[in-house]
Design a protein around this nucleic acid. Structure first.
Lengths: 189, 189
DNA sequence: CCAGGTAGGTTCAATGAACGAACCTACCCT
DNA sequence: AGGGTAGGTTCGTTCATTGAACCTACCTGG
């Protein structure tokens, strides 16, 4: 076995991550080292949908607490999420996508489209150009305007096959049409 | 907890897979249940690059044999790869992408582009429109022809930052420019 | 005919990651 | 004083991954 490049990622507390795709000279492998772990892409997807708080990720994903903490820390260390204090006393942080994280939108979009067309066949969420209301094309472009729509200008509305009364409050809050990245408002019911 | 669809995948020997993203009503989660496991997307990437044989995947990826066997079986069961007998006596099979698998190209392309622009900064492989030689744009379109290029018409050539004398014979064979999906020719050196 | 090699696996013990439950710490409200 | 909440950490159990060894046809050279 050859140790080719220093592809190891060192987190804050010195623990080495890196999933041993290091022998691959390939940007896909590099990407998967960073976002390829279990749960990671779902955390990022939720961040696009406006989820920002530890607890909201927790109830919406059904992820074990320890795993969530680990993923949030890793994504923050990678510069994909940013941890930002939104209140002192008690100290509370929220996690928001950085530019690097936001740049993952085409990937998520492509993945979701593949899943819809080849797996579920159901229309769960619809993405539209907020300016004109037109549904986006396969590459995130607006067929009416002819341009690729920037992430903050994408509006998400529930599709016809999405359940109307989900169990958890975060899913319920996500039923309201809103733009990507815009914080979700979870009522503490 | 709601059990939405029969999202469980049953393999040949009856073992239940499915990664428990089942609570998510989301096509991204569905997609990740199928291609989100460790190694899976790299196997698919190699299939796009023309790798077809068990042994070639093995040496190129450095993946444990048991894991490779498991992934190939799962991908075949999902209809993403197709197992095809290419010689009797001794019986030998090759694994090729189905239409469903080929449809993953935009996802892989987006992921690789993100990795290159936000992680490695190196140009390892370049994708061109075989008909006119123009390098593809971010969505796999040909800037010269103005159309999205079909997968079999994409030519892969090594970029300036790709190592010229890799250790394993499969990587060496992949140095030769060729189209996506076209079988790689590994010399048995 | 026999020895060695090859492709494509399976089996097994050891390790590492994920899971779920319980616990902890500030702080707030009444 | 008591209860609730957000955001964690700790811990024992279970599950997946790893690497090495082994197995089975079949083929080839001497």
């Amino acid at each position: 076995m050859i140790e080719p490049i220093s592809g190891k990622v060192v987190t804050v507390d010195g623990m080495a991550l890196g999933k041993d795709y290091a022998t691959q000279e390939c940007s896909i492998a590099s990407a998967l080292e960073v976002i390829g772990e279990r749960w990671t892409l779902l955390v990022i997807r939720d961040a696009f949908y406006g989820v920002r708080r530890y607890n909201d990720f927790l109830v919406h994903l059904g992820i074990p607490r320890a795993v969530l903490a680990s993923r949030l820390q890793a994504l923050t260390a990678q510069g994909i999420l940013e941890k930002r204090r939104y209140q002192e006393s008690p100290p509370r942080d929220e996690y928001v996508l950085t530019d690097r994280g936001t740049a993952l939108w085409p990937t998520l979009r492509a993945l979701g489209l593949w899943g819809r067309e080849h797996l579920t066949e159901r229309r769960l969420r619809i993405f539209r150009h907020a300016a004109c209301g037109t549904e986006l094309g396969p590459y995130g472009e607006c067929p009416a305007c002819g341009t690729v729509v920037a992430v903050p200008d994408v509006e998400v509305v529930p599709g016809p096959d999405l359940s109307r009364d989900p169990a958890d409050p975060v899913s319920r809050a996500l039923l309201k049409p809103k733009r990507l990245l815009q914080p979700v408002e979870v009522d503490p019911a």
